[in-house]
Design a protein around this nucleic acid. Structure first.
Length: 155
DNA sequence: GCCAACGTTGGC
DNA sequence: GCCAACGTTGGC
């Protein structure tokens, strides 16, 4: 099983939105970055877990854990000319963009902020904390996962 | 609102 | 293939 971090702006789609979704499940669509696409298409598997991170928020923080409930499949929103995420370069017979389905699993006992994450020595190499890091789908190591879980989800 | 950093586009 | 210009991300 692998671990991940998914970024979202809560004004667009928040943890509460996910929690209130039917079956607490949503399609993680609209990702338009090739590296993130590769993770969605090739690496995320059913049962993988992901920290749910609020960016451009006050505060920016990890606020929950979601579980992958369907592995990568083509992003329909790329085919729809009236969708904000329409991309004419993506074809049905050669999809360019992919999604996974995720289900809310557990809210943070105490959300852990970006500033608090930066204080942790064990997280020095975490993708989220690297200078200029903008990836919206990121791998998280098992050690990073356990450390953050203990701080924000245990108890 | 500012702006640094990044990814993409397109001219050459 | 290079790289300047542009648009976007996202912390502050």
């Amino acid at each position: 099983m692998k671990y991940w971090l998914l970024k979202t702006e809560p004004t667009t789609f928040s943890w509460d939105d996910l929690w209130k979704s039917p079956k607490r499940t949503t399609r993680w669509d609209g990702v338009r970055n090739f590296q993130a696409r590769n993770y969605l298409r090739d690496d995320m598997q059913v049962g993988d877990l992901a920290f749910f991170y609020h960016s451009s928020a006050d505060p920016t923080a990890i606020v929950g854990i979601a579980e992958v409930v369907r592995a990568g499949y083509p992003d329909e929103s790329a085919f729809n000319p009236s969708d904000d995420h329409y991309d004419p370069k993506s074809k049905r017979d050669a999809p360019m963009w992919y999604v996974v389905d995720i289900r809310a699993k557990q809210p943070a006992t105490k959300p852990i902020t970006l500033a608090e994450l930066r204080e942790q020595k064990g997280l020095a190499h975490m993708v989220l904390l690297q200078k200029g890091s903008r990836l919206s789908v990121q791998p998280v190591s098992e050690a990073e996962w356990k450390l953050i879980y203990r701080l924000a989800f245990a108890g």
